[in-house]
Amino acid sequence: MQGTVDGFSYGLVTPVAAFLMACLGGALGLRCTTRSLRHQDTFKAGWLALGATSIGTGIWTMHFIAMMGFTVHQAPISYDRPITFASLGVAVVMVGIGIFIVGYRGATPLTLVTGGTITGLGVATMHYLGMAGMRLHGDIQYDTLTVALSVVIAVVAATASLWAAVSVHGFLASLGASMVMGLAVSGMHYTAMAAVDVTLHGTPAPGTGDTATSLLLPMLIGPAVFLVLAAVVVMFDPLLVMGEPDWQRPAARGGHGHGLPGLPTQRRTSAYGEPANWSARPATRSGRRGAYRDTYRTQDW
Protein backbone atom coordinates (compact mmCIF):
# COMPACT_ATOMS: atom_id res chain seq x y z
CA MET A 1 0.00 0.00 0.00
CA GLN A 2 1.43 3.33 -1.07
CA GLY A 3 1.47 6.08 1.52
CA THR A 4 0.38 9.61 0.69
CA VAL A 5 3.40 11.84 1.31
CA ASP A 6 2.97 15.53 2.09
CA GLY A 7 6.04 17.70 2.61
CA PHE A 8 4.10 20.93 3.20
CA SER A 9 1.49 20.02 5.80
CA TYR A 10 1.89 23.48 7.40
CA GLY A 11 1.95 25.33 4.10
CA LEU A 12 4.80 27.81 3.64
CA VAL A 13 5.50 28.12 7.35
CA THR A 14 8.07 25.33 7.60
CA PRO A 15 9.85 26.05 4.26
CA VAL A 16 10.27 29.75 5.10
CA ALA A 17 11.39 29.05 8.67
CA ALA A 18 13.83 26.42 7.41
CA PHE A 19 15.22 28.82 4.80
CA LEU A 20 15.75 31.56 7.39
CA MET A 21 17.54 29.15 9.71
CA ALA A 22 19.82 28.01 6.88
CA CYS A 23 20.57 31.66 6.06
CA LEU A 24 21.42 32.40 9.70
CA GLY A 25 23.79 29.46 9.97
CA GLY A 26 25.36 30.30 6.62
CA ALA A 27 25.82 33.99 7.48
CA LEU A 28 27.51 33.15 10.79
CA GLY A 29 29.73 30.55 9.13
CA LEU A 30 30.78 32.95 6.38
CA ARG A 31 31.66 35.73 8.82
CA CYS A 32 33.58 33.39 11.13
CA THR A 33 35.55 31.94 8.21
CA THR A 34 36.34 35.41 6.90
CA ARG A 35 37.45 36.50 10.36
CA SER A 36 39.71 33.46 10.70
CA LEU A 37 41.70 34.56 7.64
CA ARG A 38 43.03 37.50 9.67
CA HIS A 39 44.55 35.19 12.29
CA GLN A 40 47.55 32.89 12.27
CA ASP A 41 47.43 31.83 15.92
CA THR A 42 45.04 29.85 18.10
CA PHE A 43 42.24 32.31 17.40
CA LYS A 44 42.19 31.07 13.82
CA ALA A 45 41.17 27.57 14.86
CA GLY A 46 38.56 29.02 17.20
CA TRP A 47 36.90 31.09 14.47
CA LEU A 48 36.97 28.15 12.06
CA ALA A 49 35.43 25.84 14.67
CA LEU A 50 32.70 28.38 15.43
CA GLY A 51 32.01 28.78 11.71
CA ALA A 52 31.80 25.03 11.14
CA THR A 53 29.50 24.55 14.12
CA SER A 54 27.28 27.42 12.97
CA ILE A 55 26.92 26.09 9.43
CA GLY A 56 26.42 22.49 10.55
CA THR A 57 23.90 23.47 13.21
CA GLY A 58 22.05 25.78 10.83
CA ILE A 59 21.74 23.09 8.16
CA TRP A 60 20.67 20.47 10.67
CA THR A 61 18.09 22.77 12.24
CA MET A 62 16.83 23.71 8.78
CA HIS A 63 16.39 20.02 7.94
CA PHE A 64 14.29 19.18 10.97
CA ILE A 65 12.20 22.33 10.80
CA ALA A 66 11.34 21.27 7.26
CA MET A 67 10.69 17.71 8.47
CA MET A 68 8.08 19.02 10.88
CA GLY A 69 5.99 19.69 7.80
CA PHE A 70 6.56 16.17 6.40
CA THR A 71 3.72 13.72 6.99
CA VAL A 72 2.46 10.39 5.67
CA HIS A 73 -1.32 10.56 5.93
CA GLN A 74 -1.88 6.88 6.64
CA ALA A 75 0.88 6.43 9.22
CA PRO A 76 2.26 8.33 12.23
CA ILE A 77 5.97 9.19 12.10
CA SER A 78 8.39 8.93 15.00
CA TYR A 79 12.15 9.47 15.27
CA ASP A 80 15.02 7.51 16.72
CA ARG A 81 16.80 9.90 19.08
CA PRO A 82 20.42 8.57 18.85
CA ILE A 83 20.39 8.52 15.03
CA THR A 84 18.83 11.97 14.92
CA PHE A 85 21.53 13.48 17.11
CA ALA A 86 24.23 11.52 15.27
CA SER A 87 23.22 13.35 12.09
CA LEU A 88 24.03 16.65 13.85
CA GLY A 89 27.50 15.40 14.75
CA VAL A 90 28.13 14.26 11.18
CA ALA A 91 27.09 17.66 9.83
CA VAL A 92 29.37 19.62 12.17
CA VAL A 93 32.40 17.32 11.74
CA MET A 94 32.32 17.07 7.95
CA VAL A 95 31.57 20.76 7.47
CA GLY A 96 34.44 21.47 9.84
CA ILE A 97 36.84 19.35 7.79
CA GLY A 98 35.98 21.28 4.64
CA ILE A 99 36.28 24.67 6.35
CA PHE A 100 39.59 23.84 8.02
CA ILE A 101 41.06 22.68 4.70
CA VAL A 102 40.26 26.02 3.06
CA GLY A 103 41.13 28.01 6.17
CA TYR A 104 44.63 26.56 6.49
CA ARG A 105 45.46 25.70 2.86
CA GLY A 106 44.08 28.79 1.19
CA ALA A 107 41.44 29.29 -1.49
CA THR A 108 43.18 27.46 -4.32
CA PRO A 109 41.02 25.60 -6.85
CA LEU A 110 42.17 22.25 -5.43
CA THR A 111 41.36 23.13 -1.82
CA LEU A 112 37.99 24.62 -2.77
CA VAL A 113 37.00 21.51 -4.70
CA THR A 114 38.28 19.19 -1.97
CA GLY A 115 36.74 21.14 0.89
CA GLY A 116 33.49 21.71 -1.03
CA THR A 117 33.17 18.03 -1.87
CA ILE A 118 33.72 16.95 1.74
CA THR A 119 31.33 19.62 3.06
CA GLY A 120 28.67 18.79 0.45
CA LEU A 121 28.90 15.09 1.19
CA GLY A 122 28.57 15.95 4.87
CA VAL A 123 25.36 17.89 4.20
CA ALA A 124 23.95 15.02 2.14
CA THR A 125 25.00 12.44 4.74
CA MET A 126 23.34 14.48 7.47
CA HIS A 127 20.11 14.58 5.47
CA TYR A 128 19.90 10.89 4.68
CA LEU A 129 21.09 9.84 8.14
CA GLY A 130 18.36 11.99 9.60
CA MET A 131 15.89 10.30 7.26
CA ALA A 132 17.19 6.91 8.44
CA GLY A 133 16.14 7.91 11.96
CA MET A 134 12.49 8.11 10.90
CA ARG A 135 10.25 5.34 12.18
CA LEU A 136 6.92 4.49 10.55
CA HIS A 137 4.95 1.37 9.70
CA GLY A 138 6.41 0.95 6.25
CA ASP A 139 9.47 1.24 4.05
CA ILE A 140 11.03 4.37 2.54
CA GLN A 141 12.37 4.09 -1.01
CA TYR A 142 14.38 6.67 -2.93
CA ASP A 143 14.61 7.51 -6.60
CA THR A 144 18.29 7.05 -7.48
CA LEU A 145 18.56 9.88 -10.01
CA THR A 146 16.89 12.38 -7.72
CA VAL A 147 19.16 11.37 -4.85
CA ALA A 148 22.21 11.85 -7.08
CA LEU A 149 20.92 15.28 -8.10
CA SER A 150 20.50 16.29 -4.45
CA VAL A 151 24.09 15.26 -3.69
CA VAL A 152 25.37 17.28 -6.66
CA ILE A 153 23.43 20.32 -5.46
CA ALA A 154 24.91 19.90 -1.97
CA VAL A 155 28.50 19.69 -3.28
CA VAL A 156 28.10 22.67 -5.64
CA ALA A 157 26.43 24.75 -2.92
CA ALA A 158 29.15 23.89 -0.40
CA THR A 159 31.95 24.73 -2.84
CA ALA A 160 30.34 28.06 -3.72
CA SER A 161 29.87 28.82 -0.02
CA LEU A 162 33.53 28.17 0.77
CA TRP A 163 34.57 30.37 -2.12
CA ALA A 164 32.27 33.13 -0.85
CA ALA A 165 33.70 32.79 2.66
CA VAL A 166 37.20 33.69 1.48
CA SER A 167 36.32 36.00 -1.43
CA VAL A 168 33.25 38.02 -0.43
CA HIS A 169 33.80 40.96 1.91
CA GLY A 170 31.48 43.53 3.33
CA PHE A 171 28.20 43.18 5.19
CA LEU A 172 25.80 43.43 2.25
CA ALA A 173 27.83 41.07 0.07
CA SER A 174 28.03 38.52 2.88
CA LEU A 175 24.29 38.86 3.49
CA GLY A 176 23.59 38.13 -0.17
CA ALA A 177 25.97 35.15 -0.14
CA SER A 178 24.27 33.71 2.95
CA MET A 179 20.85 34.01 1.29
CA VAL A 180 22.13 32.19 -1.79
CA MET A 181 23.59 29.53 0.50
CA GLY A 182 20.29 29.17 2.36
CA LEU A 183 18.41 28.86 -0.92
CA ALA A 184 20.82 26.20 -2.19
CA VAL A 185 20.68 24.15 1.02
CA SER A 186 16.88 24.36 1.11
CA GLY A 187 16.76 23.38 -2.56
CA MET A 188 18.95 20.37 -1.82
CA HIS A 189 16.64 19.32 1.02
CA TYR A 190 13.42 19.51 -0.96
CA THR A 191 15.05 17.88 -3.98
CA ALA A 192 16.04 14.97 -1.74
CA MET A 193 12.52 14.82 -0.29
CA ALA A 194 11.10 14.62 -3.81
CA ALA A 195 12.92 11.28 -4.13
CA VAL A 196 10.98 9.76 -1.21
CA ASP A 197 8.36 7.09 -1.77
CA VAL A 198 6.67 5.28 1.15
CA THR A 199 5.23 1.76 1.05
CA LEU A 200 3.07 0.93 4.07
CA HIS A 201 2.85 -2.52 5.69
CA GLY A 202 -0.80 -3.37 6.21
CA THR A 203 -2.59 -1.56 9.00
CA PRO A 204 -0.60 1.43 10.32
CA ALA A 205 0.76 1.00 13.84
CA PRO A 206 1.96 3.69 16.26
CA GLY A 207 5.67 4.45 16.12
CA THR A 208 8.00 3.11 18.77
CA GLY A 209 10.08 6.26 19.22
CA ASP A 210 9.34 9.89 19.95
CA THR A 211 6.73 11.69 17.93
CA ALA A 212 7.65 14.64 15.75
CA THR A 213 6.13 17.09 18.24
CA SER A 214 7.69 15.60 21.36
CA LEU A 215 11.15 15.18 19.81
CA LEU A 216 11.70 17.86 17.20
CA LEU A 217 10.40 20.93 19.03
CA PRO A 218 12.45 20.46 22.25
CA MET A 219 15.40 19.23 20.22
CA LEU A 220 15.51 22.41 18.14
CA ILE A 221 15.68 24.70 21.16
CA GLY A 222 19.34 23.95 21.90
CA PRO A 223 20.66 24.55 18.35
CA ALA A 224 18.52 27.67 18.01
CA VAL A 225 19.93 29.10 21.25
CA PHE A 226 23.46 28.27 20.09
CA LEU A 227 22.93 30.12 16.80
CA VAL A 228 21.63 33.17 18.66
CA LEU A 229 24.66 33.17 20.98
CA ALA A 230 27.00 32.72 18.01
CA ALA A 231 25.31 35.66 16.31
CA VAL A 232 25.98 37.78 19.40
CA VAL A 233 29.66 36.79 19.34
CA VAL A 234 29.97 37.64 15.66
CA MET A 235 28.11 40.94 16.05
CA PHE A 236 30.70 42.06 18.58
CA ASP A 237 33.37 41.51 15.94
CA PRO A 238 34.46 45.08 15.08
CA LEU A 239 35.18 44.11 11.46
CA LEU A 240 31.67 42.78 10.83
CA VAL A 241 30.32 45.97 9.29
CA MET A 242 33.24 48.38 9.12
CA GLY A 243 35.70 46.03 7.46
CA GLU A 244 39.45 46.64 7.70
CA PRO A 245 40.39 50.31 7.86
CA ASP A 246 42.52 51.59 5.01
CA TRP A 247 45.43 52.40 7.27
CA GLN A 248 45.63 48.76 8.40
CA ARG A 249 45.96 47.34 4.91
CA PRO A 250 49.41 46.26 3.70
CA ALA A 251 49.51 48.96 1.02
CA ALA A 252 48.82 51.66 3.57
CA ARG A 253 51.33 50.28 6.05
CA GLY A 254 54.04 50.56 3.45
CA GLY A 255 56.02 47.79 5.10
CA HIS A 256 56.41 49.66 8.39
CA GLY A 257 55.92 47.50 11.42
CA HIS A 258 53.40 44.72 11.75
CA GLY A 259 51.37 43.83 14.81
CA LEU A 260 50.71 40.39 16.12
CA PRO A 261 49.14 38.00 13.61
CA GLY A 262 45.42 38.58 13.33
CA LEU A 263 45.44 41.75 15.42
CA PRO A 264 45.10 45.25 13.99
CA THR A 265 48.36 47.08 13.51
CA GLN A 266 48.39 50.23 15.61
CA ARG A 267 49.45 53.59 14.27
CA ARG A 268 52.50 54.95 16.02
CA THR A 269 51.96 58.30 17.67
CA SER A 270 54.42 60.95 16.53
CA ALA A 271 56.88 62.06 19.13
CA TYR A 272 57.48 65.72 19.90
CA GLY A 273 59.20 67.37 16.99
CA GLU A 274 58.72 64.30 14.75
CA PRO A 275 56.89 64.62 11.42
CA ALA A 276 53.25 63.55 11.68
CA ASN A 277 53.75 61.64 8.43
CA TRP A 278 56.28 59.35 10.10
CA SER A 279 56.36 57.02 7.10
CA ALA A 280 58.19 59.67 5.07
CA ARG A 281 61.94 59.38 4.76
CA PRO A 282 63.86 61.24 7.43
CA ALA A 283 65.49 64.48 6.44
CA THR A 284 68.97 63.99 5.03
CA ARG A 285 70.01 67.55 4.41
CA SER A 286 72.66 68.95 6.65
CA GLY A 287 72.11 72.01 8.75
CA ARG A 288 69.47 72.95 11.24
CA ARG A 289 67.46 75.13 8.83
CA GLY A 290 67.39 72.43 6.15
CA ALA A 291 66.23 69.82 8.65
CA TYR A 292 63.41 72.01 9.92
CA ARG A 293 62.41 72.89 6.35
CA ASP A 294 62.21 69.20 5.41
CA THR A 295 60.26 68.46 8.57
CA TYR A 296 57.56 71.00 7.78
CA ARG A 297 57.49 69.88 4.16
CA THR A 298 56.57 66.33 5.16
CA GLN A 299 53.81 67.32 7.56
CA ASP A 300 50.54 65.45 6.88
CA TRP A 301 48.12 68.35 7.14
Rank of each mutant, 00 (worst) to 15 (best):
R297L: 09
P223S: 09
P282E: 12
Q74F: 10
A205E: 13
H258G: 02
A148T: 08
G116T: 06
M134R: 00
L145E: 00
M68K: 04
M181S: 05
M179V: 11
D6E: 11
T211Y: 09
G29T: 06
L37N: 08
V155C: 01
G262H: 04
F19L: 13
A212T: 11
L220A: 07
A291S: 00
S214V: 11
V168A: 03
G257Q: 10
G182P: 02
F85T: 01
G56V: 06
V232M: 04
V241S: 02
T213Y: 07
A86L: 09
L50I: 10
I59Y: 06
M131L: 09
V196W: 12
V225Q: 01
T34L: 13
T84A: 02
R267N: 05
V232Q: 00
L229T: 04
S286V: 13
Q266L: 15
P15G: 01
D210W: 15
G257L: 15
G255H: 05
R289L: 14
V155W: 08
G11L: 12
S214H: 15
F85Q: 00
A177H: 04
G11T: 07
P206K: 03
G209A: 08
I59V: 14
P282D: 12
G3P: 02
L217N: 06
M1W: 15
V113H: 00
L215H: 06
S161A: 11
R297K: 07
G3S: 08
R35D: 12
F64S: 02
A66V: 09
L145F: 09
R31V: 15
Y296I: 13
R81Y: 12
V123W: 08
A224V: 13
A154Y: 04
L220S: 05
T284W: 12
G262Y: 10
G89M: 03
F226H: 03
L12G: 04
L239Q: 00
A194N: 03
T295R: 09
D6H: 14
G51A: 05
A27Q: 03
A195Y: 12
H201I: 08
P218K: 08
Q299Y: 07
G182L: 11
M235Q: 01
L240R: 00
I83R: 00
M193N: 03
H189W: 13
P275L: 13
P245I: 08
L112A: 01
Y10V: 09
L175N: 03
T71S: 10
G3T: 11
L175S: 06
H63Q: 12
Q2I: 15
G287C: 07
A230S: 03
R105F: 15
A17F: 14
R81K: 00
L200G: 01
A177V: 07
I101F: 13
I99N: 07
V102G: 07
S214A: 15
F236W: 15
V166E: 01
L37H: 07
G106P: 06
G96F: 12
H258W: 14
A280T: 08
H63C: 12
V113L: 10
S214W: 13
V147F: 10
E244W: 13
P250C: 08
A177P: 02
G255D: 07
R105M: 09
L145T: 02
T191S: 06
G243Q: 02
M181H: 06
G3A: 10
M181R: 01
H256S: 08
T61I: 09
G116A: 11
L50Y: 11
G259F: 12
